[in-house]
């Protein structure tokens, strides 16, 4: 563990808590993409299959349980409890255009042609594009609530911090995983446009409103 990875995990944790607070306080899931949350649930389920088989640390296990538990609770809030506020018309990204290519790529490019390794690779590739339905929804509605912007900023920062973690681990431990790094770079790049809007607007107290 290093400071970059710890900050990354905390940023990820903060994003999930911000999202849950937004939903619970406003009792609304307006502006939130249910499809992205379903993709995140797939990512966590595929990545944490070893939750019960391999023990890394208390921290690792607690975080995995928390991430899996909260993402399914978020899906419950979107599609059941606050279903009336779910904007399905604007949440229209075709996720099959993500899952099929990512699934194929995981078969072709991986470290080892073994079931658990391919599933893990699939979760890494899927996570890098899982936010697209959410960003697509914001571009369609033309705006994002400020609290949703904070959620996205924390979520985008998490993988950017992981990139720093991999740089650190490369020099400190000689550790390097090309698949995780490339997917992490793609994932962070997808947020750049949003980061720009967040820093130039939200930090000045304005709302994010894209030219619709």
């Amino acid at each position: 563990m290093n400071i970059f990875r710890l900050c990354g995990d905390m940023s990820h944790l903060a994003a999930i808590i911000i999202l849950l607070l937004k939903m619970w306080k406003t009792r609304s899931v307006a502006g939130i993409s249910g499809k992205s949350q379903i993709l995140f649930a797939t990512v966590f389920t595929a990545r944490y299959l070893d939750l019960f088989t391999s023990f890394i640390s208390i921290y690792n296990t607690c975080m995995k349980v928390f991430f899996i538990g909260t993402v399914y609770f978020t899906i419950y809030l979107i599609y059941m409890k606050f279903k009336a506020t779910y904007d399905s018309n604007h949440d229209s990204f075709r996720v099959e255009f993500l899952i099929v290519p990512v699934g194929g790529l995981a078969f072709l490019v991986n470290h080892e042609f073994a079931p658990l390794e391919i599933i893990w690779t699939f979760s890494i590739y899927l996570e890098s594009v899982a936010i697209l339905p959410q960003l697509f929804m914001i571009s369609k509605t033309g705006e994002a609530e400020t609290i949703t912007s904070h959620y996205l900023f924390a979520l985008g920062s998490y993988r950017a911090l992981y990139l720093c973690n991999w740089i650190y681990r490369y020099y400190a431990e000689g550790f390097f995983d090309l698949i995780a790094v490339v997917a992490g770079v793609v994932q962070t790049i997808l947020y750049c446009d949003f980061f720009y809007l967040y820093i130039t607007k939200v930090m000045k107290g304005k709302k994010i409103s894209l030219p619709a």
Partner: peptide, 10 residues
């Protein structure tokens, strides 16, 4: 083998 190492990350 990098595949073994990375599994200690979330």
């Amino acid at each position: 083998d990098p595949a073994e190492l990375v599994k200690d990350e979330l």
